[in-house]
Each structure stands twice: as C-alpha cells, then as structure tokens.
Computed example of a mutant assay.
Amino acid sequence: METHSGDVAVSLRRPKGRTAPLGLPWPQVSREQWNDYRWQLSHRITSVDALAELCRIPAEEAQRLSRVTDIYRLGITPYYLSLIRFDDPDDPIARQCVPSAEEVFGAQDGEDDPLEEEKDMPVPGLTHRYPDRCLMVVTNFCSMYCRHCTRKRIWTLGEAAKTEFELSKMFAYVRRHEEIRDVIVSGGDPLTLPTDRIEHILKGLRKISHVEIIR
C-alpha cells in the first residue's frame, strides 16, 4: 500500500507485549489511514480464512470456527486485531473478538435473548421495559462483533440499519407513551450510521416534547 509524502508508516507493535501477527497485510499503512475509521471498516477481517492466515490458526481449528461463523458472523478491525497478544492463548482481547467453538457447541446452555428484550418489544426494534425509558435498536451493524454479545440473535438478520418506515413506527410508539422521558439509541453500533441517518433519528426524537434525555 502506498504512503503519501511525509506520512510515517504505523508500527503495529503495541506495548506490554501485544504484537500484531506476522504477515499482517498493511505494513505500509500511513498513520492518517490507520486512524481513519473508514479505512478500518473497509479492511475488517470478516472470514475465518483471512483470520486463519493472519493468526496462523491450524486447519482443523479453522474448520471448527467456520461452523461458528456460519451462524454468528465475524468482524474484527485491523486496529483491534493489532491489540491481541498472540502468544497468550487466553488473551482477553482475543477472547472478545475471535470466534470460539464454545459459541455453538455450548449453545444448549444459553439463551438467544438472555435479557428477554423481545418480551418487552411492542414494535420491532424498540424495547420498553421500564416505565420512563425505552431502547431503540437502530442497526444490526458493528465494526467489531463481541463474541459475548447478548444480541447475537440479530446478527443473522444481516448488517442492516432500520429503515425510515421502521424508525417511524418507533417514533410513533414513543409519541403515544408520554411517560417515556429517556430514550437509549443502540444497536449494533448506531455511530456507524451515516451522519444524515443519525441526524434523522435525533431530530425525530427531539420533536417529541416529553423526551428529555437521548443517549
């Protein structure tokens, strides 16, 4: 990858022994690129094959992990990958983002909806459990998918944001329920949405007079 004049290639070596894997395919990325969230998103690791090549995962283990990602998607940004200490099999950052066979083979011990959000979901995407507040899930997309996520059930729906029609249903519900003063905008990661979509959501909520807090 080319670097611009004056750019300093980013060292992917991190303090405290955290070292990027050998063969990381961005050795000449500029600091400007590395710090650009758009570059990070466009270079995410999204397949077990790519992860296995970078992290030297044995073929048999990669095959097991593919059975996991057939159900629960994989997404790791280069930055997050660079934080992993690959000489530690129990590295906590790796545990957070690298798939594990336990996700599938231990599934009988877990729940698809451990927080039971859908039991309190009067309209798709909106959970209203406590009288004065509600939660809006406005996108299924995350730049990095945490393996312990309590909303993994929505990963199977694809990396999609709620449509304007779906958002309008949520706004209408909030308008009808004047006891709601606090709205949590969540996902996925809502800050990965385009600026105009974030603005649309915030303006839609700000138009509701009894909503005092948006977070």
Rank of each mutant, 00 (worst) to 15 (best):
residue 6 G to R: 10
residue 83 L to D: 00
residue 117 E to K: 06
residue 61 E to R: 15
residue 114 P to G: 08
residue 149 C to K: 03
residue 25 P to S: 05
residue 185 V to C: 06
residue 116 E to I: 01
residue 186 S to Q: 13
residue 128 H to W: 10
residue 52 A to G: 10
residue 185 V to Q: 07
residue 205 L to C: 04
residue 101 A to M: 08
residue 165 F to L: 12
residue 2 E to G: 04
residue 189 D to Y: 02
residue 99 P to H: 09
residue 14 R to Q: 14
residue 194 P to M: 01
residue 15 P to S: 03
residue 54 L to F: 09
residue 147 R to M: 01
residue 49 D to E: 15
residue 89 P to G: 02
residue 119 K to L: 13
residue 40 Q to F: 06
residue 78 P to S: 06
residue 13 R to W: 05
residue 190 P to S: 02
residue 98 V to S: 01
residue 50 A to S: 14
residue 121 M to R: 11
residue 189 D to V: 04
residue 204 G to K: 02
residue 205 L to Y: 04
residue 162 K to C: 08
residue 98 V to Q: 01
residue 117 E to F: 11
residue 61 E to K: 15
residue 37 Y to A: 08
residue 16 K to Q: 13
residue 193 L to W: 05
residue 166 E to Y: 05
residue 72 Y to Q: 07
residue 128 H to K: 06
residue 29 V to D: 00
residue 95 R to W: 03
residue 3 T to I: 10
residue 45 I to S: 00
residue 170 M to A: 02
residue 106 G to L: 13
residue 102 E to H: 12
residue 9 A to L: 14
residue 116 E to D: 14
residue 159 E to D: 15
residue 134 C to H: 05
residue 128 H to D: 04
residue 21 P to N: 07
residue 31 R to K: 11
residue 56 R to E: 14
residue 159 E to I: 00
residue 89 P to S: 04
residue 49 D to Q: 13
residue 213 I to N: 08
residue 81 L to S: 05
